[in-house]
Design a protein around this nucleic acid. Structure first.
Lengths: 212, 212
DNA sequence: GAGCGATTTTATGTATACAATGATTGCGGA
DNA sequence: TCCGCAATCATTGTATACATAAAATCGCTC
């Protein structure tokens, strides 16, 4: 594996996990030394993070981890709605019905009792997203969605959703999967719209009430 | 201006203009020598082009200018529809009505007689896009659209549209601008849908008939 | 003592040298 | 003659040295 890839993967994870919080300055020499690579591959990693929108330059000379406020989250969800509604519609038109019928089934069965179930939920959602990408068969759309999801990881972290919302989210995903399996593009798109509306509402509520 | 920026700008222009056609191999030493920069800033430029999707690696060792076929154009327009419909809707909700009323007026007046009028048309469309971006006030959406437009430059080049289509396109843009000025999000979105449908149809027709 | 300017320092931007990897070509054997 | 192996060559990946520019600090002047 290339040193630049390792640096990128490490920095990405550290930014998404909050180890490198918004506003943290990323000096080249400092980070290169910390990650055990030279400045050249580190700069490549920073360039990719900059293209992702995860870092931005504060002044001409200092690069920082970019912040996310409620306004950013609203903007992000506007793009997300546009892309995911399209993806759902296209998946309903082209996707493999059996795949999504199976997913709907699994979503119906997933329990949400213990703490470990959270990870199971997120793993299932990740498989759902992957199935969507595979069904849509559109690299431009997939890469645009990948960028949105990159930012979403951080959003989820700073707005820890409650268990009740998790159960609702499962039900909403189940409807989307069922709509795709049933080849109903309009329902798939509108169910996605509803899901994203609820998700955004929940996140913004969580932010305004307890910014932890 | 930084050397890496010059290299990026030059390569971008050369790819969009067709001087570097799809499939052209981009050796680092060769391009660095040609552009008069060292390999380090050149690599940064190639990284950005790769993130844009304008270059891709053919094998593990050789980087080439990526190609665009009819399938890619369809995929690109699926994303474009998702993003531009959203943008039109949001602009109708938030945008400055006077700005778009003025644009609608200019679009009504623009003549399409001579050859020079083509450039006037494209300049006007560019201002329209800029006004849309300004009205939407969403960096995520704007940057996603910028990426799509980067690819569209190449698409337009290989599908030279006829004068008749240009006149139709002006009329379609005029309706979109008018809808935004009238604060009618649904009309703005649907007019955008219609416009993109017609544009795509025209491009694909032009490709199948005379791939020049 | 405060403000402005020059100097020093520290950061980034660029070039080049070095390392490693993969492809290609030439040689030997079957 | 063809296949396989090896050696060389070319190209990318990484490290480091150098150039350049911005920022901070120290000193000088008002």
């Amino acid at each position: 594996m290339r040193a630049s890839d390792r640096a990128y993967a490490t920095l990405l994870d550290e930014i998404q996990s909050g180890f490198l919080p918004p506003g943290a300055v990323l000096g080249e020499v400092e980070q290169a030394a910390r990650l055990g690579v030279s400045r050249t591959p580190l700069r490549e990693a920073l360039g990719r993070l900059s293209a992702d929108g995860l870092v931005a330059q504060q002044s001409a000379r200092v690069l920082v981890v970019s912040g996310i406020d409620a306004g950013d989250i609203r903007e992000l969800f506007e793009v997300r709605r546009a892309l995911e509604e399209s993806a759902a519609r296209l998946a309903a038109e082209r996707g493999d019905a059996a795949t999504f019928a199976t997913l709907a089934d699994e979503l119906a069965r997933v329990g949400l009792g213990g703490a470990g179930e959270r990870d199971a939920y997120y793993a299932l959602i990740a498989r759902f997203d992957a199935a969507l990408d595979a069904a849509v068969v559109n690299d431009y759309l997939t890469s645009a969605l990948r960028n949105v999801r990159t930012h979403l990881v951080r959003v989820r972290r700073l707005a820890r959703d409650n268990p009740g919302r998790l159960a609702e989210s499962v039900a909403e995903h189940r409807l989307i999967a069922a709509a795709i399996a049933a080849r109903d593009p309009e329902l798939a798109a509108h169910a996605t719209h509803v899901h994203l509306h609820n998700a955004l509402t929940n996140i913004l509520d969580s932010l305004s009430k307890g910014p932890s």
